[in-house]
Design a protein around this nucleic acid. Structure first.
Length: 346
DNA sequence: GATTCGTGGAT
DNA sequence: TATCCAAGAAT
C-alpha cells in the first residue's frame, strides 16, 4: 500500500492536465484509450479532439461509415484500431442499446479492447479494481522491484499482471492505475529516468543496484521485411486517376494507386512487362515518367517499403473515374499522402 | 507463442 | 544513421 500511496500523492500534485481526465464518460475514456495504444500523448491529442468534435456520442460514431472513420484516423497508424473502434461502436449501439459495458469481463468482448484497455475503462469509469499493465507499468514495476523477467515472455506477462493486481488500491483503482502510468511516462522514463526527483528513490531496487538502464528486460528482436512498391499514378486529360482499396495486410481498407510489388527494385522496362501494368494501360499509347528522384524507405515497425511513383499519362480518360480534385477525400496511408502533397498534377 | 499490425519523437 | 519504443490487440 505504501507503493500506491506514494505514487498517488505524487500523481495528484504532478499529473498533466489532459482532456480525457476531465470526464468519466466511458465513451470518451474508451476513445482516448484506443487512440493512446502504442501512441504518445503528443501524437494522439489532436486526434482525440477531432473525434470528440465529429462524433460527440457513440451514436454519432456508429452512424458514420468506416471510410469516414478511417479518414479521420489517417496519419495515426495501426488502422485496425479505427476499424475496430467503429465496429464496436455499432455493436454497443445495435446490440446493447447504446449502453456501454461497465464490467472488465464485458469490456473484453469489444473488438480492439484487450486486457489493458478493459482494465483502464473498468477502473477509471466504474471503479472496478483491475490493474492496468502497459509499457509504463512494466518499466516501473521491473525497476522498483528489480524484476528481470522478460516483459514480453508469457511468464513475464503473467508475473507483472499479478504483481500489478496485488499492488492496486481498491478504493481508488482508476487514480492508482493512472498514477503508475503517469509516473512511468514522465519520471521513470525509458531513457534518462529522473531518479533524482523520484518519490520512490529511497526504496527502488534497481536504483540501489544501479541497474536502472538494464530494466525492463525484453527478449527477441524484430525482423524487418524489405518490400518494393511501384505505384501507377494515372493521369488523364480529364484530370482523373485510378485508386484501389487495399484488401489485405497493412493499411486494410485504405486507398492507394494501382500497385506493382516486386521482391527487388525494378526499372521502367521491367515495369511495363508486368501484368498489372498491362491490364491497366496499353504501353504503346502512354507516356511514363518516374516521379521519385531518390527512393527512401517508408519505415514501418516491421517493414521498410521502397517506393517508386510512376506517372502514366494516358489518352484514355473514360476508364479512370476518380477525379483528382476528390482525391483528398479518401483515407490513404502516410506514404500516399506525402506523395499527394508534393506532386503537382498539372 | 511468434508475428503483424504505423507513425514519429528521442537519442 | 540506427535503434528504441510509445496508455496493445489480433491472429
Amino acid at each position: 500500500m505504501k507503493f500506491s500511496n506514494q505514487l498517488t500523492v505524487w500523481y495528484l500534485h504532478n499529473k498533466r492536465d489532459l482532456p480525457w481526465r476531465a470526464t468519466k464518460n466511458p465513451y470518451y475514456i474508451w476513445l482516448s484509450e484506443i487512440i493512446l495504444q502504442q501512441t504518445r500523448v503528443d501524437q494522439g491529442m489532436a486526434y482525440y479532439f477531432k473525434f470528440v468534435e465529429q462524433f460527440p456520442s457513440i451514436f454519432d460514431l456508429a452512424a458514420a461509415s468506416e471510410e469516414t472513420v478511417l479518414k479521420l484516423w489517417q496519419g495515426l497508424g495501426y488502422y485496425s484500431r479505427a476499424r475496430n473502434l467503429h465496429f464496436s461502436a455499432k455493436y454497443v449501439v445495435n446490440e446493447l442499446q447504446g449502453e456501454f459495458p461497465s464490467k472488465y469481463k464485458e469490456l473484453l468482448n469489444l473488438k480492439g479492447v484487450g486486457d489493458y484497455t478493459a482494465s483502464a475503462i473498468a477502473s477509471i469509469c466504474f471503479n472496478e479494481p483491475t490493474a492496468v499493465v502497459d509499457g509504463n507499468v512494466y518499466r516501473v514495476l521491473s525497476r522498483y522491484f528489480g524484476i528481470d523477467t522478460p516483459i514480453n515472455s508469457s511468464n513475464g506477462i503473467k508475473e507483472f499482471k499479478q504483481l500489478a493486481q496485488a499492488l492496486i488500491n481498491t478504493k481508488i483503482p482508476g487514480t492508482h492505475n493512472q498514477a503508475v502510468m503517469e509516473f512511468g511516462a514522465t519520471v521513470c522514463k525509458p531513457q534518462n529516468a529522473d531518479c533524482n526527483n523520484c518519490p520512490l528513490n529511497n526504496s527502488c531496487v534497481a536504483l540501489s543496484k544501479s541497474i536502472i538502464k538494464t530494466l525492463p528486460v525484453k527478449e527477441k528482436k524484430l525482423k524487418i521485411r524489405k518490400r518494393y512498391f511501384n505505384y501507377l499514378v494515372i493521369k488523364t486529360k480529364n484530370k482523373t486517376t485510378q485508386l484501389v482499396k487495399r484488401e489485405k495486410g497493412i493499411w486494410l481498407n485504405m486507398y492507394q494507386f494501382p500497385l506493382v510489388e516486386t521482391d527487388k527494385p525494378i526499372n521502367q522496362q521491367e515495369l511495363i512487362e508486368h501484368s498489372t501494368f498491362n491490364e491497366l494501360v496499353d504501353f504503346n499509347t502512354v507516356t511514363i515518367k518516374l516521379h521519385t528522384k531518390s527512393v527512401k524507405p517508408h519505415k514501418l515497425s516491421h517493414q521498410h517499403i521502397y517506393t517508386k511513383f510512376w506517372i502514366i499519362e494516358t489518352p484514355n480518360s473514360l476508364k479512370f473515374r476518380h477525379s483528382w480534385s476528390d482525391i483528398k477525400k479518401y483515407p490513404v496511408p502516410v506514404l500516399i499522402d506525402n506523395f499527394l502533397n508534393e506532386f503537382n498534377y498539372n
